[in-house]
Design a protein around this nucleic acid. Structure first.
Lengths: 343, 343
DNA sequence: CTTCAAAATGAAACCGATTTCAAAAAATGA
DNA sequence: TCATTTTTTGAAATCGGTTTCATTTTGAAG
């Protein structure tokens, strides 16, 4: 069945297509009675203008491409959802792609976005978060960004990306101060890979805080690892081989924290009485573990809002700051503080 | 900076736009030397045809709209990713929307998809999975499907949707037979809401199997609940109030299983020695719990493949069966079978 | 009842591809 | 070499909107 078009409406209403378009875009003067008539027909036929035609004529698609490393990671799922909701408010649609840690795929996705003539791209994870990003990618991004604004949560030296980042320094401060306030002095870092920007920043800040508090920074308390359950588990197993056991562990994310907790429990120790555990991300998982996990919340709604705002403003030629920070919030739960009355 | 178009290429190559288009689509005869020249220029300028213009001219966008209840649910994230990969192979792009359990949002998303003139829509969860779907939605879907094929994992009576479903009967069989083989006779069902089709089917089959094996079906062993951690936790707390405790629990998904496991552990019982736990979905979580969770795997790659295949075939006017099933697979882990050597 | 500015309107161009159709060029056979 | 078939090719129409610009209507002022 053929789709109805603006011309069909125009014919039946006895006006020109231009007038229907004016009613649709609502930005010019149309005599009320004609407007009524046209609107009635639009209603009657449930007419919705073809987005491709619209996009073609004014050369902008009102679509924002979102590329994440992997939606199966709840962190990215949260951010994507937040972006979707924010975009909706701004009258934009979001197109999601996974890069799966594969640079070729990242490039491919960028091309796909370009073919679709998206208004802007938001990228999280992947090369834009990697300290040794290959120059090949930088080049592609540069070529890309000469046409389409790219908003990243990360950093890509040598390119003109917009950066919207979670304030890593603040995130570390929240966690470290919380633990130090609780009396912890032997705090270990079950880190991710240090060539990932956000991870590296956290590591640096961790050392800085220890120094500020005049706490000795032991190399053996910093373990590089993966961002999943096993990364956490293995890191903890390594920490168990330290001469003096840490009293608190900071995990790079909730999944890693889960691995750490299992390792601790297998060793017959209690959380938080023997060892406290805390993490970053505050995904739904943090609420679900036992004990519930103290975690730094990234305020996904604010984050998504800012990402989209930046993307939209840049796409429409407005002025936006190149670097923006989102302030995280600490969610204190029983993995660091055993509640009075419980146990 | 202005985007280059097919005309720019044509001019510089000294040919017509039609010829460039022929090179692009690769489906007509073009003299080799001209083809070379054009391809060189395409390469040189990194030209990518405008998808909107393409879509406009042949009235198909090569985009598949995917609507899920909530990507933050790993089940949907898995399916989405599988669809994305399958679509990529077929030369399609996927547009993701969340319906968040809100019928208005579902309708809105459908409209969005229509505006984008997507080639087909895949919907998982939400009204299409609800036994008392409101007729209003059915009406909208019918109007919708007269233009665009809709593939659902579920059922929508009174509409012409394509159905690609996980074989719920088989899924239940796998789990029940596994448990019965292990000697369990008191098997409880921590169910979801029975007005959800897939959940209802599972419930029916559960009863059927008990009957087949001449096992008494106790009403108190079936608990309706939510699809998350708390749903599982509460269900198990309820089960603990049974006169005779079940020896095995089937959870509606991995999150619910986690809740169940916590409840059991809080009561000081062991898994699987005292109570075995198994579930549906086999998301990444199943591997991560302690003990690892026996779960029915839905073969997301096959599922996504079939969903997309159906969508694409229908979109291109081919013949596809209206109903298709995906066969699930049982992943046996330590939550039902304590490994020899461990403990 | 003019006169003139403001508001409303439609014809036509445009966005960037594909596709049809007829013409031109090349290849084939006699 | 010429007639005929087959390949190549480009001009122009098309997809469905928006926008410009010139024209018509309307309304207010004189």
């Amino acid at each position: 069945m053929k789709n109805i078009t603006i011309y069909d409406i125009a014919r039946e209403a006895g006006v020109s297509a231009a007038t229907v378009s004016r009613v649709l875009t609502n930005n010019a003067n149309v005599r009320p009675e004609k407007k009524q008539k046209v609107q009635a027909l639009i209603e009657k036929y449930n007419f919705k203008p073809n987005a491709m035609a619209k996009g073609l004529s004014d050369t902008k698609s009102k679509v924002i491409g979102v590329m994440v490393a992997d939606v199966r990671n709840p962190f990215y799922a949260e951010v994507f959802l937040a972006c979707e909701l924010a975009a909706e408010k701004a009258g934009y649609t979001v197109l999601l792609c996974n890069s799966l840690g594969d640079t070729d795929r990242e490039k491919q996705n960028l091309e796909l976005f370009y073919e679709q003539r998206v208004s802007a791209v938001i990228q999280l994870g992947g090369r834009v978060d990697d300290l040794n990003s290959d120059t090949d990618y930088v080049e592609i991004v540069n070529q890309f960004t000469s046409n389409i604004p790219l908003v990243v949560s990360g950093k890509l030296d040598g390119t003109l990306c917009y950066q919207v980042q979670i304030d890593a320094v603040k995130a570390v401060d929240l966690l470290m101060e919380h633990l130090i306030d609780l009396g912890h002095r032997r705090i270990a870092l079950a880190s991710g890979r240090l060539n990932v920007l956000s991870t590296y920043e956290k590591y640096q800040r961790y050392k800085q805080i220890l120094k500020n508090y005049r706490i000795d920074c032991r190399e053996e308390y910093v373990v590089e690892g993966r961002y999943n359950y096993y990364g956490g588990y293995e890191a903890m197993e390594k920490l168990f081989r330290c001469e003096e056991l840490p009293t608190a562990i900071i995990a790079i994310n909730d999944y890693a924290a889960l691995g750490i907790m299992h390792s601790i429990q297998e060793h017959g120790l209690r959380i938080p009485q023997d060892i406290a555990v805390a993490s970053y991300d505050n995904t739904q998982l943090s609420e679900l573990l036992s004990p519930r996990l103290t975690s730094v919340d990234y305020q996904y709604d604010v984050f998504g809002q800012k990402l989209v705002e930046t993307a939209v403003t840049a796409a429409e030629g407005g002025e936006v700051s190149r670097i923006q920070l989102v302030t995280p919030k600490l969610m204190v739960r029983e993995s660091t503080v055993s509640e009075a009355g419980s146990l």
